[in-house]
Amino acid sequence: MSKGTIRNFLLGDPQADRVVPPSGFTAQLTLFVSGAMAFLAVFALALSLASGRLADRWAEELARSATLRINAPADQRAAQTAAALQILRQTPGVAHARALTEEEQAALLLPWFGADLPLEDLPVPQLIEVIQDDPSYDAAGLRLRLSGEVPGAVLDDHTRWRQPLVKAANSLRRLGLVSILLIAGATAAMITLAAHAALAANRQVIEVLRLVGARDRYIAQAFVRRFTLRALIGATVGMALGVLGIFLLPEASDEGGFLTGLGFQGAGWLWPVLIPILGASVSFLATWIAARRTLGELS
């Protein structure tokens, strides 16, 4: 496609636009399909961005912290805790280490055992929160030293459960992106069908245009411009409704977790603006290819 064609397309030609008769159901179909697909694309985009944020947060926050668990008899627990803290303070790569208070430990168990838990009567291990520095500590070396000096210490650097969580969030992000691609593909397929139907219905118009000297590019452009503008309008309306739906979702909260964090954040609200542009581009390409093929078949 030449630069001149694109320029003519963007600037438009009111006379050229009029040569194609206004068509009924294909116009409505294009508007509806692009609107519905844009609406779905907004949610897919929101899902993808929220999953991405979650994956990044989990990866970052969990990667920076570790937990040291002291499983020792009650009479040795304080000594082993103190020894472990001493080792941690001496370990390069550990920014900060502190033993959790009884209240903090009770709060961690609260969801499972309730508020009346007699923590002092249970053999609950002492937990030490370890915040790593940059660069981080040598986990294998630290484990080796702890096993020698603090026999009841178990270092959990969260890798075991962090990796599947981050992997799941990243998979959700990819699913969101794949959904957007599928939506774009489905839009292209539907608009191609609508364009084929419109071209077939206007076969006589095409013949007349050719007989008076219209080039195929001119005829194709008249159809493509019309379909692209319809797709742009439909997708803009669909996008606006989708964004409104996202806006009306409950605000992100710790209690709601992932479900309430499904919206856009900050400049992320601008991302949906790309959806109508993508929809119009998809429509432009689909109609252009359909028009050139149909015109080739009609010759």
Partner: peptide
């Protein structure tokens, strides 16, 4: 082109 007035139909070769 039945959807265009006579003048526009006559001018069609110029338009295209």
């Amino acid at each position: 082109l039945d959807h265009l007035p006579v003048a526009d139909n006559i001018a069609l070769p110029m338009t295209v």
